[in-house]
C-alpha cells in the first residue's frame, strides 16, 4: 500500500466539497479513464469580483486523486481567479504534506482541472499543454518524455550521458534497461558507455538483427572467429575460415587443435558462437568434410 501522509488519508476518508455543484459557471473535466484518474472540477465564480465562491469536485480515481481534488477545492475557495491560477501542482502536493512520486500526476491533474475550469468560465478554449510519460527513474522522479527530450536535444548516446544530464539512472540502477530502450528508440542503436575505439564506433549489439548481405555475413563470421582465436592459441591451436556454403561453415583447425580428441567439442563451441553472433542456425564442419564432399 502507498505511503500516504496523514493529510492525504484524511482528505480521502473525509473529502471536502464533493459532489455536483448545481449553479456552477465554470467546469473543467480532465484526466484519462485509461489511466484510471479523471476529475470534474466545478466552480461558482462571482462575475463581478471574479472570486471563487464555491468549488466542488467529482473524481474517478485512486485515493490520492480524491485527496488532491479535495485539497484543491479547499485551496481555491474565496480566491480570485487570477490568484487561484497561481496554485501549482507542487502547492497541492505540499498542502497534502507530499505525495508519492508515482502519484504526483494526481496533483498535476488538479492544476489542469483548475485551468480548464477557468478557461470554461471565461469562454476560452483550454489547451492541454501537459505531457507526462511513464515514470522511469523512481529515485529522481524522471519520466520517459523528459528523458527522451533530453536525449534528442543534446544528442546523448550513452547511459552515462543520460545520468549526467537528467540524473535518471544514477540511483538504484533498476531503470537502466528502460533508459537503454529509450536510447535505442531515439538513436536506432545503443552505444557502449566506453569511449569508442579508434577507427570504429562499436555498437553494443543492436536488438534488431538486420538481414546481412553475403559480404557482411562472411565478415561477421570472420570477426567471430577472430574473437575465438586467442582462446585456441592459448592451447597452442588455431582456426581459419576456409569456405562458407550457405548454412555450412568450413574451418581448418591447426596446431594442437588438429586431431585433438576435443576437436568435435571445439567445433561445437565455434558453432554455438557463430549461431549466437549471426542469429541463425548453421553448421560448422572441419575442412576435411569439404574435400570429401
Amino acid at each position: 500500500m502507498w505511503d500516504y501522509s496523514d493529510k492525504v488519508r484524511e482528505h480521502f476518508f473525509n473529502p471536502r466539497n464533493s459532489g455536483p455543484l448545481t449553479d456552477a459557471n465554470g467546469i473543467g473535466d480532465v484526466g484519462s479513464i485509461k489511466c484510471g484518474d479523471a476529475l470534474r472540477l466545478m466552480l461558482k465564480v462571482n462575475p463581478e469580483s471574479e472570486i471563487i465562491e464555491d468549488a466542488h469536485f467529482q473524481t474517478f480515481g485512486c485515493g490520492s486523486a480524491i485527496a488532491s481534488s479535495s485539497a484543491l477545492t479547499e485551496m481555491i475557495k474565496s480566491k480570485t481567479l487570477d490568484q487561484a491560477l497561481q496554485v501549482s501542482n507542487q502547492d497541492i502536493a505540499d498542502y497534502l504534506d507530499g505525495l508519492p512520486p508515482e502519484k504526483m500526476h494526481c496533483s498535476v491533474m488538479g492544476r489542469e482541472a483548475l485551468h480548464a475550469a477557468v478557461a470554461n468560465y471565461r469562454g476560452e478554449a483550454w489547451q492541454d499543454d501537459h505531457e507526462e510519460g511513464d515514470l522511469v527513474c523512481k529515485c529522481f522522479a524522471i519520466d520517459a518524455v523528459m528523458i527522451e527530450e533530453t536525449i534528442r536535444g543534446n544528442h546523448l548516446k550513452t547511459m552515462a550521458d543520460v545520468t549526467n544530464y537528467t540524473k535518471a539512472g544514477g540511483g538504484c540502477s533498476a531503470c537502466h534497461e528502460k533508459i537503454e530502450d529509450i536510447l535505442i528508440a531515439v538513436n536506432g542503436r545503443l552505444y557502449s558507455s566506453d569511449a569508442p575505439q579508434k577507427g570504429k564506433t562499436a555498437p553494443v549489439e543492436s536488438p534488431v538483427k538486420p538481414k546481412l548481405t553475403n559480404y557482411q555475413r562472411i565478415r561477421k563470421i570472420e570477426e567471430t572467429l577472430e574473437a575465438i582465436r586467442p582462446m585456441l592459441q592459448r592451447d597452442h591451436g588455431d582456426v581459419t575460415l576456409v569456405e562458407v556454403d550457405g548454412k555450412k561453415i568450413y574451418v581448418a583447425l591447426s596446431g594442437a587443435c588438429q586431431g585433438c580428441q576435443m576437436e568435435s567439442a571445439t567445433l561445437g563451441g565455434i558453432q554455438q558462437k557463430l549461431i549466437e553472433a549471426l542469429g541463425e542456425l548453421l553448421q560448422v564442419l572441419p575442412v576435411g568434410a569439404l574435400a570429401t564432399g
Binding site: 464533493s18 459532489g19 473535466d29 479513464i33 476529475l39 470534474r40 467529482q58 473524481t59 474517478f60 480524491i66
Partner: peptide, 20 residues
C-alpha cells in the same frame, strides 16, 4: 464522488456525459 454516477445509478450515457 464519481463524475459518472448520479443518485442511484450511472448518469445517462456515462461515456458521453463525462469526457475528460
Amino acid at each position: 464522488l464519481s463524475p459518472y454516477w448520479s443518485v442511484d445509478g450511472p448518469v445517462e450515457s456515462p461515456e458521453r456525459a463525462f469526457k475528460p
